[in-house]
Design a protein around this nucleic acid. Structure first.
Lengths: 98, 98, 98, 98
DNA sequence: CACTGGAAAATGCCGC
DNA sequence: GCGGCATTTTCCAGTG
């Protein structure tokens, strides 16, 4: 038949409600995170870059290096690596100047 | 200058840590939700359908409000809050007239 | 190794250039669309409302298909293509029963 | 009154249709671009990195440098710059080794 | 020029 | 284990 047994129906309802409860909590946390970024913005931080930092910290050092390496190979193939190198030496300079 | 003031540096650290804390909690909730679906699956429910049910319920919750909002924009744009009926049928007609 | 073979390098260049070409065309179309809205504005239409009309029409085009898809999933999951009516009302009931 | 004059109505219809036509073309281009990436993937390229390359080429050298600088300041504040530096010297090595 | 909302991209999940 | 689909996140254009 095409309807669920009464017990199954109850189970289903419970499960759906529990899931919805969890999703609400998750949504609330998303809002909190968004607020944190806004707070940071209010303090003068660059939100976009801040997100980048959080993302970078999530990735392990190894992953980062791997991805970076592939990128450099491609840029090199396109003759764009010299340009990038200029940016990086600027960074080097910054580090040295501290 | 190329470095943050000590106070800003502390703020930044705090913010990043708070964000990471919140993201962990969020991730834990995602895991809980996934587990709920697995539990349901163990009870014989079709997970894909279950997800669709949850999605549908969410949509029907949200959508009414949205449609209301759209209508309000129309009413506002046309500046005729007391000729609702006419506006609505005009909109219907425009959409239908493809 | 850290460099691409000559052939791969050529391929990469070609692909990147083709993508960039396509993105330019896409950008040009975006500009055309923007111009159309401006033209409409010049003729006295309310651009915001006009955008909403276009969006609504798109949605109503897409949404039917989606709903169809949802229905198909249900039918499939329940393996009862010839008891459609029963399934539909079951779904309605489940959604309504919040 | 709440209905458009016949002429305005015709204009509106035309404009909407023209816009929809343009949006379809735009959508087709998006599909073409997606296909290009898939083609590249078939040839063994890393799509994610490829997208990054295209993005980088779009940004001017100056923009790139500015954004990079802010990022480095934040990473420095978090004591993450040494790590990153290691990655970059790896790149340096690659460049030297060619 | 900050905000909102919509498009595109990245990620995660499920099936095979 | 991978490829496709759905969700989530990120980005960008348009608006006030």
């Amino acid at each position: 038949m095409s309807t669920l047994a009464g017990s199954a129906q109850k189970q289903l309802k419970q499960i759906v409600e529990q899931i919805e409860r969890l999703e609400e909590e998750k949504k609330a946390l998303s809002a909190d995170i968004r607020d944190k970024y806004l707070e940071a913005k209010g303090l003068g931080f660059d939100v976009k870059v801040l997100r980048q930092v959080v993302r970078l910290r999530k990735k392990s050092h190894v992953e980062r290096q791997e991805e970076q390496t592939v990128l450099e190979v491609y840029l090199h193939a396109l003759g764009m690596l010299d340009e990038m190198k200029a940016v990086e030496s600027e960074v080097e300079r910054m580090i040295a100047a501290e």
